[in-house]
Design a protein around this nucleic acid. Structure first.
Lengths: 228, 228
DNA sequence: TCGACGGTTCGATTCAGCTCGAACCGTTAG
DNA sequence: CTAACGGTTCGAGCTGAATCGAACCGTCGA
């Protein structure tokens, strides 16, 4: 009994141009309908439907029916991490000459990673949180210090509510463009959510791109000192 | 310009039964010849050759020619991590009824992850190293404390030599069976090497399985207290 | 009740890519 | 030098899977 077949199941499910495009779209964190996904992969909805079934069967994607719509989304954080890691390996093994894309710099700066913030800014924030000991490691576990809890509460995040979720509060997630960690987990998701609520950041339609608005630039600078 | 195609390149390279089997074999950490890899995937050497070319083209595998042999190996730690992560996702999304295999428990206990130790024992060792502050986090970086350096030197590892490598000294690697970290990086590799040299552990031929021998059981117990 | 719309199922077609036999190249051993 | 051996290349056959048109099912709005 080898592990080969199990890897094949997962990798073959991802390793088709259409399905990869769908997963990439879903990495934006929003759940999308079958038709939306088909159109953004450039195929008909019949074909899209069969691809989506494969993704669901493989356990990479989950469905939620709502009226006559069916919303598809990345199944869980593990899968999101796997994809993020894969993007990283792909970027590093890519043929350098087709490596530069127009939107690439903006994506490197700030983007959505499933449900939390990634990119230069996210890495920078994460490291500042650690340096000022709002986040710290207890053994190998990343945790929020007492100061950190107060800080987050002031920022508008109900930490207690997050703790009651089954999901881990803080996790480190390896950033594919920076090769350094950024904040994931329930807190990472809540933090990004809060940036949107405050109007500090805006998510670009149909892309993983996140734009930091002037108010956010200012607010983050005030909160953390100047961002790189 | 989307990221879809780049993911496809990597995932499609992995997502073939033969190539997955080859990669699984290479995750044992040893470089293998084309013929060996073909035979362990159950195909002829012509077919194997073309698969290996695809793996090399995708940047997942590297070759080293030596006389009339060509030795293939996992390209780098990133790729190894990606595969490890993929095994984890595969295990967690697997159909539970075919989840149990004969060698599974032993594999969960101790196995090679590319070039370092993984499994229950590895996770346990890692956590004990942290708890006794031989390893600690400085900000987000895992480092060896002064005590840790002394400890490793006593254990027979030349830490200074490892530091001079370009490769990171300590890294945490997520264990797919345990979902907790174990020690990777140059130190992780050296530690496993030392276990073999001392005769504390033995690697099973043609598998990722590592057997801890009585001397090792005793020695580790003496070094760390009783292992789980 | 009916038409519009989102989504799936079925069947036929097409094509990429996996496979192996045969031939070939380079290295090593005798 | 020659035979054996590891490995690759080439060509032809085959199969699994992606694709789309057409038909169908369920929900929504009028």
């Amino acid at each position: 009994m080898s592990i080969g077949p199990s890897i094949t199941r997962i990798a073959a499910a991802i390793g088709d141009p259409v399905r990869a495009e769908m997963l990439a779209a879903l990495m934006g964190g929003r759940a999308l309908t079958a038709t939306e996904l088909a159109s953004c992969a450039g195929i008909t909805k019949q074909t899209g439907s069969s691809h989506l079934r494969r993704l669901v069967d493989a356990g990479l994607v989950t469905v939620r029916s709502q009226g006559r719509h069916r919303y598809f989304g990345i199944a869980n954080e593990d899968v999101a991490h796997l994809l993020e890691q894969m993007i990283g390996v792909a970027a590093r093994t890519a043929n350098p000459r087709l490596h530069v894309g127009p939107k690439e710099p903006a994506l490197r700066r700030a983007r959505v990673c499933y449900d939390h913030l990634a990119g230069e800014i996210a890495v920078d924030i994460y490291e500042r949180l650690l340096r000022s000991e709002l986040l710290c490691f207890v053994g190998e576990n990343l945790t929020l210090s007492a100061d950190g809890v107060r800080w987050m509460r002031r920022f508008g995040i109900d930490v207690e509510r997050l703790r009651s979720q089954r999901r881990a509060l803080c996790r480190a997630c390896l950033d594919w463009s920076e090769r350094r960690n950024h904040l994931a987990g329930a807190l990472g998701a809540a933090f990004l959510e809060r940036l949107f609520e405050r109007g500090w950041a805006r998510r670009e339609r149909g892309s993983r791109l996140v734009t930091i608005r002037p108010a956010g630039e200012l607010g983050l600078k005030r909160a953390f000192g100047s961002l790189r």
